[in-house]
Structure formats: C-alpha cells, structure tokens
Design a protein around this nucleic acid. Structure first.
Length: 476
RNA sequence: GGCGGCGUAGCCAAGUGGGAAGGCAGAGGACUGCAAAUCCUCCAUUCAUCGGUUCGAAUCCGAUCGCCGCCUCCA
C-alpha cells in the first residue's frame, strides 16, 4: 500500500519497521466539549486506515490519546486550561469534565462505527513519563530551566522545521510566535510550565508544581506504547506546525532515533465553503447532526472525498449521500443472509466480483482512495442487480453479500446491515399493513390501496409491490 | 506577511502524459393496475483562462483570474 508521507511530501510504499506489526498513533481529542464534524472526518479517515491495514494482514496496535490536561485557551501564559475553564462553567471537577466528554466522544465515534483504539492513554495518567522525557532532554542539553519553566531549545535541533518546511529564520521574531521573557530564543517552546495553587490540574516535578507543555504528551505516550520509532503518526493538518514539528524535536533529541516513519495528515472540513468555527455560527456537533442524519450517512459523506482533500459540508451534499446510502442498503437487503447455500456462483458473478474487488483494492492501495473504492462498490451494485434481475440464484446472492460485507462493511466501516435492522422497529406493524395492501390489490380495490400507500408515504414509509401480488412496507 | 491546496457536467467527486470513474439530480425506455425498487439508454469532443513543452496534456512548465485552508486553542 502506498501512503502520502508529509515528511517526504511523496507517496511511499508502506513498510513497517517490524512486520507484521504496525504501530499507529493518532492525535486524539481534547475532551472539554462534545465532538464536532471535524472530529468525525479525522477519526473516520484514520479508522479506514486501521481497518485496511488489518485487512492487509498487519498486526496493528492503534494508540490514540485523550488529552485531559495542559492545553490553554490561548497561547500566552495567562491563558486558562480549557478543561478547567469548562469545569468552572459547568460547575464540575475538571476530571468530571474530562470523563464526561471522553464518554461523549466514544459515544459519537461508536455511532460512526469507528473502531476503538487499542489503547486510549490519558495525558493526566502519564505525567511521570512526561517528566522523565523532560529530564532526559535537560540531561542531553536540549532543554533549560528558568524559574519553574522548562523550555526546549530549538537551536539544539538543526532539523527543526523538516516536517512543516519552515525555515528557522522565518520563525525568528515572527509576529505570532509567542514572546516569552524566560526564553533564550523566541522559537523555543515550553516542555513544563509552572502553575500556582489556583491551577487545579498541576503536578509536582523536579522544577516545582506545574503541568506539561502541550506537545509533550504525544511524544511520551507514543513512545511508551509504540517504542522510540513509530510506524505511522496521524493527525489533523493544522497540527503539522507547531505540534508535530515539536513532537519530532523532543522525541528525536531524547532518543537519538527517528520518531515517526510515516506522517499522515487529514485535511480540514469546511461548512458551506467556510472554515467551521464557533464564532462563525457554523459549528456542527455530531450529536446534533445525528438528529437529522443517520451516522452511517455521515460516514458515507466523509468517505466520498479523499482524506487529504478539504471536505465541504452542505445539506444538499448530505441529501445526495443519503440517496446513495439507500441504494447500497437496498442492494444489501436484497441479498439477504443466504448462509446455507453451497452452490457455486455463476461465471458472470465471479467475474463481476473479481473486477469490483480488484478496482476496490487498487484504490485503497493508492493512499486510501475511498472515492475510487466507493465507485467500485457502486459498479458492483449495478452489475449485481442486473444479474439478479435476470436470474436470482441464492449462490450468487451469497457471493455478492460476501463481497459487500468485506468491502463496504469490514473495510470502509459502513454498517449497512445495521442500518436495515435499525429501521426495522415497526416491522411487525409494517407486515400487517403490507398484508392489508396486498388484499386490497388482489381485490382490485386500487383506489383504497393507493390512498393507503400515499398516506404511508407522508409519514415516511414506502410501499412496494412484489411480483407475487403481495406488498412490502418499509421505513425510509 | 510566510506556507500550502484547489478550480473536472446542474451539484458532489476520482483520474495527474495516450480511452473523461462513480454518486446525486435530470431525460427517455423496460417492468408495474399505477407506483416504488431495479435494469437499459442518454446526460463534459472536454477538464478556470491564456501561453509554452510534447507526436500527444485535464494531467508537465509559466502567467493570469478566482476560491479555500494552515501559520493562533482547534481534528
């Protein structure tokens, strides 16, 4: 499989350091609020990576942190810890906030059918590791302490900037680079920050009470669980600088080894052509979106564009995704669950499925080209329907079901069968109504039968008539 | 100001040197009592514009116009 490596700015064949094991680290959320659609895009994208790596036979260890401490509301030291701020607003303990929104995050990711990471380490639970990393950097001369603060010395790492492509001189005296009294160099960043008693989330350290700088946790936890060199590190594009750049600096200075071999970055989400921002009034929480659209439709929407492209969210786009999902669901539902069929599928089916899987895998191998992979699935749906229209053989349905379940469900994570099942709460009632419509039709009381269909349509049910004279009623 | 990306049919979106995928919407047809679903056919001689390289470019190079993002907490 080829992956686009931000570090080399090129497509590279993925080869883990120690096959078949593959270590993947993805920057997780800061848990001070409900997850938004941007989280959805990022974690669905990386979920597909994990699923596909596993399909290819890699033994993946997927680590994704939960940031429950240390990030500030703004860049200055006067900034407030975001979790502490939220705790004050909700009148809860900071750890209650972290717990509440961690659960909320997993709830939303579960709905999107995102597989849970193998390890979800909390930053607050890894302060000793972070302190140890700071000590190492101090010992090796890559950091210095100033009055309870510890800074990383960018000058001590000539490769600083290799990921983001920034030149050191650009970083000097930049208008937006934090100028801090204690720093020897404006580019330096804090590894450890001093915190007074008013700061609830603080720990004792060799440099006094404080808390870790915001780049530190990822380095510490990635190396703790995946070793000094991580195969794949993923995250949002906006984290390339300074977050990931600084992770590299800290980690490589501490170990003397390459920190990450493949850097993957997911592009951003826009809403109606604009950046999604709280102040812009286009902030979309997943929980709100799920009220309007089934999570699987959201997932399909995300997968219709490539993970390195910006994805623009629009209502018409969601409508289009919904129609597409219905098509997939209708096909899968038509296939049923023909478990006990032992006959061989027809040549047409075998050939058609081979073609679909070839195109699908070729697309996935090409830096996770999910739009191309979806095209292969839709081709299969059309060809499959065509074959079954001509001759509905259970062995063919079974083969097609297997292909759908592998490509759409296992790899792309579209829970199509779950969708069908979830809209089935009223199945018994629908059965009775279908019986009634069938009786009316057989009695040629078409006017009454159609009035029934129209009224059902109005409340969200679709009636379709079957070749045998019966009817079927389903919820849209 | 620095950096990066994008501009492909009505909308969305792959393709990145030699046949313009796929989805949605739309048109016609088959099927149906009528529908729905499904199938068939049609729907970009052309890929923002201009110029260049090439036997050949949506794909490479240059310019122009337009849009977006990152650089600041943000996935």
């Amino acid at each position: 499989m080829k992956l686009y490596n931000s570090l080399t700015r090129s497509l590279e064949e993925f080869e883990p350091l120690d096959p078949p094991y593959a270590g993947v680290y993805v920057c997780g959320p800061t848990v001070y609020g409900h997850s938004h659609l941007g989280h959805g895009k990022t974690y669905v994208s990386f979920d597909v990576l994990i699923r596909y790596l596993r399909h290819l036979g890699y033994r993946v260890r997927y680590v994704q942190n939960i940031t429950d401490v240390g990030h500030l509301t703004d860049n200055a030291d006067s900034g407030e810890d975001k979790i502490e701020k939220q705790a004050r607003l909700e009148k809860l303990e900071p750890m209650e906030i972290a717990e509440k929104y961690t659960r909320s995050y997993f709830e939303d990711m579960d709905a999107l059918n995102v597989l849970r990471p193998d390890i979800s380490p909390r930053a607050s639970g890894h302060v000793p590791e972070q302190i140890e990393l700071v000590r190492t950097l101090l010992r090796k001369g890559h950091a210095y302490e100033v009055d309870g603060y510890v800074y990383f010395s960018v000058e001590s790492f000539p490769e600083y900037g290799k990921l983001s492509g920034r030149r050191p001189e650009e970083l000097m005296a930049g208008t937006r680079v934090e100028i801090d009294e204690g720093k020897r160099d404006p580019r330096d960043f804090a590894l450890w920050k001093k915190a007074g008693p008013d700061h609830i989330l603080r720990w004792n350290s060799p440099w006094g009470w404080g808390y870790p700088g915001w780049h530190l946790e990822c380095s510490a936890m990635a190396m703790r669980y995946l070793g000094d060199t991580v195969d794949i590190h993923g995250g949002g594009l906006e984290n390339i600088f300074p977050h990931h750049e600084s992770e590299i600096a800290q980690s490589e200075c501490a170990t003397g080894r390459q920190f990450v071999r493949y850097w993957l970055h997911n592009n951003m989400l826009t809403v109606d052509g604009q950046k999604m921002g709280k102040s812009l009034g286009n902030w979309i929480l997943l929980k709100d979106l799920f009220e309007k659209f089934h999570p699987m439709v959201v997932r399909l929407y995300i997968l219709r564009s490539h993970y390195r492209s910006q994805l623009d969210f629009t209502d018409t786009g969601m409508g289009s995704a919904l129609s597409g999902f219905r098509r997939l669901a209708a096909f899968r539902s038509r296939l049923g669950e023909p478990e006990g069929e032992d006959g061989a599928p027809s040549e047409d089916t075998v050939g058609m499925l081979r073609e679909a899987e070839t195109v699908f895998m070729r697309s996935m191998d090409d830096d996770l080209n999910t739009p191309g992979a979806l095209a292969a699935i839709f081709d299969m749906v059309r060809a499959g329907n065509s074959i079954l229209d001509g001759n509905d053989r259970p062995a063919d349905r079974k083969a097609m079901a297997g292909a759908m379940d592998l490509m759409a469900e296992d790899i792309l994570g579209l829970d199509i069968r779950g969708w069908s099942a979830s809209s089935d709460d009223t199945s018994e009632l629908c059965g009775i109504l279908a019986e009634a419509r069938g009786t009316l039709r057989r009695s040629r009381l078409f006017e009454a039968a159609d009035r029934m269909r129209d009224r059902l349509e109005e409340i969200g049910y679709t009636a379709r008539d079957l070749p045998d004279g019966g009817s079927e009623i389903t919820r849209r």
